[in-house]
Design a protein around this nucleic acid. Structure first.
Lengths: 232, 232
DNA sequence: CTCAACAAAGATGTATACAGCTGGATAAGA
DNA sequence: TCTTATCCAGCTGTATACATCTTTGTTGAG
């Protein structure tokens, strides 16, 4: 919670408007579990933290409502939603299908830049394998999602891919923390396969690799979440 | 533009909050071409019309930004975006794929209520065939989209289906106005096929019928839009 | 001791004033 | 006449005051 009190402003050097930056930051915090499900976001607090009034904060929150990750009730506050097992299943079923479409729907050509990016990610993942850190894993995965999204030519598919990722992220990252270094190993393998697919400029393969590993990810979720059900 | 000046308020009898109702109304006006692409939406005007201040209007507009149908620029206004041919193609490619998923991804069982709804729509479409009216056609089609969306069990697929519909709607409805009663005939056929599929409780068939007619729709768009390119 | 009514604190929802930005009209100079 | 600088009307962006709703703790009677 107060881990962010030190940050008075958000980086707006990218030319985006301030409210867009705030929106992305809040979304990141939800996906990365800085805001855990059930937590109450107070506009006044966020306003103080970002050094603006409540108005842009309300704007930012309002613009991520469509993802269904937060819910605002009058007089109460904005709470981060806990996804039901059914919802999680729906999200993953959808992601599997979307992954299958990556290669077939007007993909972009892979460039040298993409190869550099994937290689950097692979190296980082290999380092992570040696000394696992959940936060670093999460940020690595996030960069990978960005890379994949960039390869998608179809505007709408790209949008849907990102939306599905945002909805899956927090659950997936919770499981990743529990699973530990096992997921780093899996990520290294995924990145190796993606790198080869990109080298061959085979976007269908890229999609299929994603599909496979999304399936693995969902298996881990069901495994770890059924354990947690006993706890709760 | 001033066709709406008479409506001072929006119907909030459904228990939804006022801003949600405004949001839906603005979205409807964009999809139904009451607001044509290029038009400038002014918050102050809308505020007067709906009898509220600018704040809820801004909220409502902010919440439909993610659909990419409007674009707000500081000091200028919020303009309704003109979709490029590429974007339209992307939307329709996506709708084709989504239609194929309707039957396969946890569909809901068809109930008697659904049959009543589809029968009502069919009767209305048959009437429309006799005396075509673009506006009535548009509203009929909108009801059909609602019906189909209700049949989708997967939460995320339903959300994506609606988003894709909203993005396609304005273009499709422009073409429908140009095409005239031809589209009413096509709608009757579509509804007949859907009715039979629902009677058999065959959701895969429902999806395939949608897929077929979305394809027909896109063919019409390319046909009429290439004509319009010469005009412009 | 229990329960109900009430009051107060704190959250979001809304209205409004003002600041900042943009595009076009206007007028001065070459 | 053409160009350019300036000004201004009008829009969005932001801050702030106030209204309304919810929760919770308190206080009183039974």
């Amino acid at each position: 919670m107060n881990a962010f009190k030190s940050r008075n402003t958000v980086d707006t050097s990218d030319g985006k408007t301030s409210v867009e930056a705030i929106q992305n930051e809040i979304l990141r915090r939800i996906c990365f579990l800085d805001y855990e499900p059930g937590i109450q976001l107070k506009e006044a607090e966020l306003a103080v933290e970002f050094g603006v009034s409540r108005t842009p904060i309300r704007d930012a929150i309002g613009r991520i409502k469509h993802l269904g990750l937060v819910e605002t009730r009058n007089g109460v506050g904005t709470v981060v939603v806990t996804l039901t097992p059914d919802q999680i299943r729906h999200v993953y079923e959808m992601r599997l299908q979307l992954a299958g479409l990556i290669g077939t729907m007007s993909p972009r050509e892979a460039t040298g830049k993409d190869l550099v990016r994937i290689t950097d990610l692979l190296n980082a993942a290999i380092e992570l394998e040696l000394e696992f850190d959940a936060r670093a894993y999460v940020e690595l995965n996030d960069l990978l999602q960005d890379l994949i999204a960039d390869l998608i030519g179809n505007t709408l598919l790209k949008s849907f891919w990102r939306q599905a990722y945002f909805q899956a992220a927090s659950t997936w990252y919770r499981v990743a923390s529990l699973a530990g270094s096992e997921v780093a190993l899996s990520l290294v393998q995924e990145l190796r396969e993606l790198k080869e697919a990109l080298e061959r400029n085979d976007m269908v393969a890229v999609g299929l690799v994603q599909r496979i590993h999304i399936g693995y990810g969902y298996q881990r979720i069901t495994r770890f979440l059924s354990c947690r059900n006993e706890e709760t």
